[in-house]
Simulated scan of single mutants.
Amino acid sequence: MTSPTGRSLELYYVDGQPGGMVTAELFNWTGHVLMTPRTRIAAALMRTEAHHAGVYILIGEQEGEPRAYIGEGEDIAGRLKAHGVSKQWWTTAVLVTAAANKLNKAHVRYLEARLIAEARSTGRVPLDNGTTPTVPSLSEADIAKMEAFLDNLMVVLPAVRVDLFIQRARPTVSTAAVAAVEPEAPRFTLDYRKRAIRATAVLVNGEFIVEAGSLARESWAGFETHYCASLFAELVRAMILVPQGDHTVFTQNYAFSSPSAAAAIVYGRTANGQVAWRTEPGGLTYRDWEALQLDLETNA
């Protein structure tokens, strides 16, 4: 397998604080990202890049549910001024352009269509867009350039806390296939005997992946303010968790940010994944297994 290549990302806090306008750029990439809170939209639209051709993402909540809208324009500022009146729910805008205004109308329509399709495929945040536009025809060279542009954009957006394109569902593969790719990948199980729930997971490339076929609680039973409450609802909405008798079942492998997040979804409430997950075989808690790995690294 090819080792991941590092990237150099530059964030610039325009207002001198994280809560204000932020620009993001990757080294050796012509793209430019500007994220602004709605309270600073007037100042943002006075910037030069706001009058370039590009795509934009509006993020917020509607009736307590996360919401997003993806659009394009040859002059983003003009489009956003219209949305400032017609769409009341958004609180953050993300403007994506290119240096020297190198994107044309066909480019931004392509990017818009691809971003809408990507957002809908992840299912993380419902879109306010009525339809998924058809990807416009471009030359083979332009398609290659726009796909490369998107690859870089997907690196930048999570850095400015835009996660609606993050795909955590993973293709369902057999245990033998995982072992063939990562022969030393540690495996873990979680047994919630009170509710006859069993889940399995594997740690691959730093991702804690709960495997398809694992069981979880039938519904979220913990505090609604817990961050995993919305994640549980998201997984149900995306049909990654589907009802199965008195439980729900994972229909796909799913990568979690931590063992505790994974355990919380399985339990349907707050959980300490450091002790809930145990190695298979061996029965070590994740915490003890992790401590052992640290000792081995230190003494190597």
Rank of each mutant, 00 (worst) to 15 (best):
M1C: 02
M1D: 10
P4T: 05
E10V: 12
V14A: 08
D15C: 00
G19N: 12
G20R: 06
M21D: 01
F27K: 13
N28V: 13
T30W: 06
L34Y: 09
T36G: 02
A43K: 08
A44P: 01
E49V: 05
H51M: 04
I57D: 02
I57E: 07
G60D: 11
E61R: 13
E61G: 05
E63Y: 08
Y69E: 10
Y69W: 07
I70D: 08
D75V: 11
D75W: 00
I76V: 13
A77D: 06
H83S: 05
H83W: 13
K87F: 10
T92G: 00
A93V: 09
V94F: 06
L95E: 07
T97G: 02
A98C: 12
A98H: 11
A100C: 02
L103G: 08
E112D: 05
A113V: 02
E118D: 12
T122G: 03
G123M: 08
R124W: 00
R124H: 02
V125D: 05
V125H: 02
D128S: 12
T132M: 07
T132Y: 00
P133N: 05
V135K: 05
P136D: 09
S137N: 10
S139F: 07
E140G: 01
I143L: 12
A144S: 12
A148F: 11
F149V: 06
M154A: 03
M154Y: 15
M154K: 10
L157S: 05
R161A: 12
R161M: 04
R161C: 03
I166A: 13
R168S: 15
A169T: 11
P171I: 03
S174G: 14
A177R: 08
E182G: 00
R187F: 09
Y192E: 15
R193I: 13
R195P: 00
A196D: 15
I197K: 01
V204T: 13
G206V: 13
I209Q: 06
I209C: 04
E218T: 05
S219T: 10
S219N: 09
G222C: 12
G222S: 08
H226T: 04
S230G: 04
L231D: 02
A233H: 11
A233F: 03
R237Q: 09
G245H: 03
D246T: 11
H247Y: 11
T248M: 13
V249F: 11
Q252M: 14
S257Q: 06
S260H: 01
S260E: 04
A264I: 02
V266R: 00
R269K: 12
N272T: 08
E280H: 11
P281S: 09
G282M: 06
Y286M: 01
R287S: 14
D288E: 14
A291F: 10
D295Y: 11
E297S: 07
E297Q: 11
N299M: 10
A300P: 01
